[in-house]
């Protein structure tokens, strides 16, 4: 385009041309952005993966002082049958001394009749530090507080699954669960 040419029609022409090019480029870039969405979304959980996300567990089979471990959607959960001494230890710990204050009763779900069943504690099996699976009654190391011990970085949990010592920031999570009957627990993700 010659520089000396400054007549009006040509200027308008140039402006319109610019506008059309800008609109075209914008539409192309915008469209490409939208196309990216399905390619990103496809990596999210698929319908069947989301659906298979609850499990019913019979707790009457857990020996006193022992625990069972279940996987739901690949995530570990602990169901532990505490001894009366362990229950007492959990209940008598002063809440104010805890890094993540919670009473033992806060960490239990009611039975169908509305009462609590302190003998059974249900927790997530992932250490809140970096997701290792803590060692429990079956693993030969209950940690300094008689609950669980995470071997990865030395987090000690008490018999209520509360963090007492080590790098983990919070207590073991309580999953979404309910008592279907007095002896069957349904855990959902």
């Amino acid at each position: 385009m010659s520089e000396s040419n400054t007549t009006n029609p040509e200027e308008i022409d140039e402006e319109r041309r610019d506008f059309i090019h800008i609109a075209t480029v914008a539409a192309t870039v915008g469209g490409a952005g939208l196309v990216a969405y399905p390619f990103i979304d496809q990596m999210n959980a698929a319908g069947d993966t989301k659906a298979a996300s609850s499990l019913e567990v019979d707790i009457s089979q857990i020996p006193v002082g022992g625990e069972i471990r279940v996987l739901i959607g690949g995530k570990p959960f602990f169901l532990r049958h505490r001894t009366p001494a362990e229950v007492a230890a959990a209940e008598s710990t002063p809440v104010s001394s805890l890094p993540d204050p919670q009473t033992d009763a806060d960490r239990l779900m009611p039975l169908p009749d509305g009462n609590l069943n302190p003998a059974i504690i249900v927790t997530s099996g992932s250490c809140t530090h970096l997701g290792c699976v803590p060692v429990g009654p079956g693993g030969g190391n209950l940690g300094d507080y008689g609950g669980w011990y995470c071997p990865c970085h030395g987090s000690h949990y008490d018999t209520s699954g509360r963090i007492r010592k080590g790098p983990a920031p919070t207590n073991l999570e309580i999953p979404d669960y309910e008592y279907v009957t007095a002896s069957v627990v349904k855990i959902s993700l």
Binding site: R16, R17, I20, A23, T24, A27, G31
Partner: peptide, 17 residues
């Protein structure tokens, strides 16, 4: 609709260029 609009825009761009 998007593709048709985009093709129209490209057509006018093409004519201009």
């Amino acid at each position: 609709i998007y593709l048709v609009l985009l093709s129209l825009l490209l057509w006018f761009s093409y004519q201009r260029i």
